[in-house]
């Protein structure tokens, strides 16, 4: 039997793959990597792309990762996969968005206050109407 290495692909949201492989291919930031069992320890960032796992006997598994980190130890290969495309500007935009939402929510306090005021006015109006109705009934009797 050919030599195999244990491969785990995990993302923050769950495990994607776990099993044995004869060879793993991935796109590192410095270039394409082909990893055989008992590779020397290595750590690299991954580029978005395909990860191929050769399970032997011609069986090939394909996974798409949108980046992440690949860690190699002689008997274990771990891919910490990202589930979303990461880029500095994208993250920056998301951060801006989060800030804007907070500001909006805080300035929304004003609107809430007006809502409360309107509610109070409505309650008053209803109370007045009730009083009028009661008066009317009393008159009719």
């Amino acid at each position: 039997m050919a030599m195999t290495v244990h491969v785990d692909i995990v993302s923050a949201e769950g495990e994607i793959f776990s099993g044995l492989a004869e060879m793993v291919y991935a796109h590192g930031v410095m270039g394409e990597l082909g990893i055989a069992p008992r590779h020397t320890p290595l750590i690299t960032r991954l580029k978005p792309g395909e990860v191929r796992i050769d399970q032997g006997s011609g069986e090939m598994r394909h996974f798409y990762v949108s980046g992440g980190i690949l860690e190699i130890q002689p008997h274990v290969i771990t891919i910490l996969a990202d589930t979303a495309i990461r880029a500095r500007d994208l993250d920056e935009a998301a951060a801006e968005e989060a800030k804007r939402r907070a500001e909006e929510a805080l300035s929304g306090q004003h609107a809430d206050f007006e809502y409360a005021k309107a509610q109070a006015e409505l309650a008053e109006a209803i109370a007045q109407l009730r009083a009028i109705e009661r008066l009317r009934k009393a008159k009719n009797n």
């Binding site: 923050a12 979303a84 990461r86 993250d91 920056e92 998301a94 951060a95 968005e97 989060a98």
Partner: peptide, 10 residues
């Protein structure tokens, strides 16, 4: 989803 949290955490 984790990607919805990126901005907030950042």
């Amino acid at each position: 989803h984790i990607e919805n949290l990126f901005g907030t955490v950042k």
